[in-house]
């Protein structure tokens, strides 16, 4: 993508968000869509989050137990470190990268299909602010549900480690749990939740932008959907770095 093309896209995105971030035409219709999206984007993602978090949590403990095996480190280090990894980066950032694949492509292809089949034009002709009607419920629903997904992910991730400890006794469960509780800072939980909500906004709004600006046919919808996942991933990683520097540094 050329520089001028990039600047143009950013401009279009900002203008679209100006349309989106407005009070809805009808509150009743907004909430109807909001609850639909809460289910479609949020609730149906729980399974994926649980599955991945469980295995990654387990693998982290296995890796740490095998590789942090130095005489001068106490054995509860495994618990401390796996907690910090899951809390600080896995459940808040890596989880969002994975969700951008599922939720982002879903949003982009749904809105893109509505664009090429003239459903968005139909909304506009009725006098509905189509961007606001279609996109705002998705953004708000996903941001609101994000903390739920993160907490699920943290909990299940730590449980994954727990179960590995119970099965292999390396480290023993009591040591792992002791590690989980040692030097705990509640602030990290807030950090994870706030960060994930920012990512939630990025995922929902960027993929909606890609869908909304589709021109052409089914081929372009597919392209918009993959493009949105790529751009979302880049933005999430960059935002992670900046946000972490600002908050932790």
């Amino acid at each position: 993508m050329s520089l001028s093309g990039l600047l143009e896209s950013i401009g279009e995105y900002v203008l679209l968000m100006k349309q989106v971030l407005m009070p809805p035409d009808r509150a009743r219709e907004f909430f109807k869509e909001f609850f639909k999206e809460l289910y479609k984007l949020g609730v149906t993602s729980i399974g994926l989050v649980v599955l991945i978090s469980f295995f990654i949590g387990a693998v982290i403990v296995v890796q740490l137990a095998l590789n942090l095996n130095y005489p001068f480190l106490p054995s509860y280090t495994v618990g401390v470190v796996s907690r910090e990894i899951i809390l600080l980066e896995f459940s808040s950032t890596i989880m969002c990268l994975i969700l951008s694949g599922k939720v982002g492509s879903n949003i982009a292809s749904e809105i893109g299909t509505m664009r090429i089949t003239e459903q968005i034009d139909a909304l506009e002709v009725m006098g509905v602010n189509s961007a606001n009607y279609l996109i705002l419920p998705k953004i708000i629903a996903f941001i609101v549900f994000m903390p739920v997904l993160v907490i699920f992910s943290i909990f299940v991730g730590l449980m994954g480690g727990y179960i590995i400890c119970a099965l292999t006794a390396n480290p023993p469960v009591a040591t792992y749990v002791y590690g989980l509780r040692a030097f705990f800072r509640e602030f990290f939980i807030w950090y994870a939740i706030v960060k994930s909500m920012i990512f939630g906004f990025i995922i929902a709004s960027v993929s909606a932008y890609f869908g909304y600006s589709v021109k052409g046919g089914a081929l372009e919808v597919g392209k918009a959907s993959t493009d949105s996942v790529v751009i979302n991933s880049v933005l999430i990683l960059m935002t992670d770095l900046v946000f972490t520097q600002l908050v932790m540094g």
């Binding site: 299909t113 509505m114 089949t117 003239e118 459903q119 034009d121 139909a122 506009e124 002709v125 009725m126 006098g127 602010n129």
Partner: peptide, 20 residues
């Protein structure tokens, strides 16, 4: 004004454009 005017319009698209 455009929004108000559009509430008085009905349109049938060539491809129907029903919300699926």
């Amino acid at each position: 004004e455009v929004k108000r005017l559009r509430r008085e319009m009905g349109m049938l698209f060539q491809g129907s454009a029903l919300f699926d």
